[in-house]
Amino acid sequence: MTALSLSEAQAIVTGALADARGRGAQPLAVIVLDAGGHPVAFAREDGATFFRLDIARAKATGALGMGADTRVLAQRAAGNAAFYQGVAVTVGGEIAFSPGGVLVRRDGTVIGAVGISGDTGDCDEDCARAGLRAAGLLAEEAA
């Protein structure tokens, strides 16, 4: 099976939110996109601010569109601000340069991305990786 299933996406969301509650994180929004950028599962916790789901989606979309986790994109953007500002304009702002957007891979192939927003970028990313572990989809590094 190469596609990201609904049950896997739901497990990612559930696992990420469980991890967030365990660490006392701020209320989060979580979205899981398939490889084509279509939403498969998402949730916004009570108390998560209005824009959090949009930011989470921008993180997941950015990871998919650029082929790298948003932590990597943020590091790249810091060293080449003009280019990445141009990317943001080109894609209508549908990209966020903050940790919390993580690619989902199976056997080295990107099958989707998870995006989380609500706490610090580091916490958002940790929760995303916890969601991947809960779904049995360990965060693989690019080959």
Rank of each mutant, 00 (worst) to 15 (best):
Leu4Lys: 10
Ser5Ala: 12
Leu6Met: 03
Leu6Glu: 14
Ser7Tyr: 05
Gln10Val: 05
Gln10Trp: 08
Gln10Thr: 10
Gly15Thr: 04
Ala16Ser: 15
Asp19Gln: 13
Ala20Trp: 00
Arg21Met: 07
Gly22Met: 13
Gly22Asn: 05
Arg23Tyr: 14
Arg23Asp: 02
Gly24Val: 04
Ala25Gln: 03
Pro27Gly: 12
Pro27Val: 06
Ala29Ile: 05
Ile31Tyr: 11
Ile31Leu: 15
Val32Cys: 13
Leu33Met: 02
Leu33Phe: 12
Asp34Gln: 12
Pro39Asn: 09
Pro39Gly: 08
Phe42Leu: 15
Ala43Ser: 06
Ala43Trp: 09
Ala43Gln: 15
Glu45Cys: 14
Asp46Lys: 06
Asp46Gln: 13
Asp46Phe: 15
Gly47Ser: 07
Gly47Phe: 08
Gly47Glu: 12
Ala48Met: 04
Thr49Phe: 11
Leu53Glu: 02
Leu53Ser: 14
Leu53Phe: 05
Asp54Leu: 05
Ala56Met: 01
Ala56Ile: 00
Lys59Asp: 00
Ala60Gln: 02
Ala60Cys: 09
Gly62Leu: 05
Gly62Thr: 03
Gly62Gln: 01
Ala63Val: 02
Leu64Ile: 13
Gly65Leu: 14
Met66Lys: 09
Met66Arg: 15
Gly67Thr: 10
Gly67Tyr: 04
Ala68Lys: 06
Ala68Leu: 05
Asp69Lys: 12
Thr70Asp: 03
Arg71Gly: 02
Arg71Pro: 02
Val72Phe: 04
Leu73Met: 07
Ala74Gly: 10
Gln75His: 03
Arg76Met: 08
Arg76Phe: 07
Ala77Ile: 02
Ala78Tyr: 06
Gly79Tyr: 14
Gly79Glu: 12
Asn80Gly: 06
Ala82Gln: 01
Ala82Phe: 04
Phe83His: 12
Phe83Gln: 13
Phe83Asp: 01
Phe83Pro: 08
Tyr84Val: 02
Gln85Thr: 06
Ala88Gln: 08
Thr90Glu: 11
Thr90Trp: 05
Glu94Pro: 08
Glu94Ala: 02
Ala96Phe: 12
Ala96Tyr: 06
Ala96Val: 03
Phe97Tyr: 09
Ser98Cys: 10
Gly101Met: 01
Gly101Phe: 05
Val102Thr: 14
Leu103Gln: 07
Leu103His: 09
Val104Pro: 10
Arg106Asn: 11
Arg106Gly: 03
Asp107Thr: 11
Asp107Ile: 08
Asp107Phe: 10
Val110Gly: 07
Ile111Val: 15
Gly112Arg: 12
Gly112Met: 12
Ala113Gln: 04
Val114Glu: 00
Gly118Cys: 00
Gly118His: 00
Gly118Tyr: 00
Asp119Ile: 00
Gly121Leu: 11
Asp122Ile: 03
Cys123Thr: 06
Asp126Leu: 13
Cys127Arg: 01
Cys127Leu: 06
Arg129Asp: 02
Gly131Thr: 02
Gly131Ala: 09
Leu132Asn: 08
Arg133Glu: 15
Ala134Thr: 15
Leu137Thr: 09
Glu140Val: 04
Glu141Val: 06
Glu141Tyr: 15
Ala142Cys: 11
